[in-house]
Simulated scan of single mutants.
Amino acid sequence: MLTVISPAKSLDLAPVSDPATAPRFQEETATLVTRARRLTLKDMRALMSISEDLARLNRDRYRDWDDAAEKPAIRMFAGDTYTGLDAATLSEDALRHAQDTLRILSGLYGLLRPLDAIKPYRLEMGSRLNTRRGKDLYAFWGPRLAEALNADAEAVGTDLLLNCASQEYFGAVDRKALKLRVITPTFLEDKPGGPKIVSFAAKRARGAMARFVAEHRLTAPTDLRDFRTGGYEWQESPEDAPVFLRRAETDRAA
């Protein structure tokens, strides 16, 4: 089973000892960096909907790109999904398995393995950064991400893709080009008005599920039913769209 997740933001973190690997889409990344370098501070703010200070930080990152330090992707990202993944406490065995089966969708790098060496950046997949390939990053990446996922799945002998990414990021995967069976879990909270998706909790649960798959080397959709992290329990639901519910009392205790 291949798993995909999406990043929230990148951080400048302390060096780690993990052996780094090289991202596969280096030419495409270089093209996007060159394009980003042409943006003014005003353009950067508008493109990313960020403050002037953050725009200046990211303008400087792209300006100084060649000299920036690289770190493994799984150690670089932060956010609710990565809180759930808790990569810092993954065992070496789980990390090795994740290197083969976990993929991180990235606006700048396309598709990353956990130990691929990357530099701090900000470029959301939904950014409308126009290039010669089109008006946004969905057009820029086209079928490339789906084709790479097909190849990675074939390499590990699976036709299953567990989608733990956000809609914004998974929307960059061309479903027509993707040959894999996609499994997309939903995480609900038991609320007075009925079960609802709580964004930050669902993001953490998606990260925790990615960890669960790596730790237990899961290979079948039915294996996901044993997921209990954070108090979630599988509900009767289709294999390709499993539903997990967390009770109100569990939510208060978490």
Rank of each mutant, 00 (worst) to 15 (best):
T3R: 05
T3Y: 03
T3M: 10
V4E: 04
S6V: 03
K9E: 11
S10C: 11
S10R: 05
L11D: 13
L11F: 08
D12W: 05
L13D: 12
L13E: 15
L13M: 14
S17L: 13
P19G: 09
A20D: 12
T21K: 08
R24K: 14
R24N: 05
F25M: 05
F25W: 05
E27T: 06
T34N: 12
R35P: 07
A36V: 09
L39Y: 09
K42I: 12
D43G: 07
R45S: 09
A46S: 11
S49N: 15
A55E: 00
A55I: 00
A55K: 00
L57D: 11
R59C: 12
I74C: 10
I74D: 03
F77A: 06
A78K: 12
T83W: 00
L85Y: 07
D93V: 00
D93Q: 11
L95A: 15
R96T: 14
H97V: 01
Q99D: 15
R103F: 15
S106F: 04
S106I: 08
S106A: 08
S106D: 08
L112K: 03
R113H: 13
P114I: 01
D116V: 08
A117G: 14
I118Y: 09
Y121D: 04
L123Y: 02
L123G: 02
E124V: 00
E124S: 11
E124F: 00
M125Y: 03
G126M: 03
R128Q: 13
T131Y: 08
R132F: 08
G134M: 04
K135S: 15
K135G: 10
Y138K: 07
F140A: 00
W141Q: 08
P143C: 04
R144M: 06
L145D: 11
A146F: 12
E154K: 10
E154A: 14
A155P: 11
D159N: 10
D159T: 09
N163F: 06
S166Y: 07
V173P: 06
K176Y: 07
R181M: 02
R181C: 02
F187D: 05
L188G: 04
K191Q: 15
K191C: 12
P192N: 02
G194F: 10
P195G: 11
V198S: 05
V198I: 14
V198A: 08
F200S: 14
A202N: 12
K203S: 10
A205F: 01
R206L: 10
R206F: 09
R206V: 04
M209Y: 02
A210W: 06
R211Y: 06
F212R: 02
F212P: 03
V213C: 07
E215G: 06
T222M: 13
T222R: 15
L224Y: 00
R225T: 14
R225S: 14
R225N: 14
R228V: 13
R228F: 13
G230A: 01
Y232T: 03
W234T: 02
Q235I: 02
Q235T: 07
V243I: 13
R247H: 13
R247T: 10
T250H: 13
D251M: 07
A253F: 07
A254L: 15
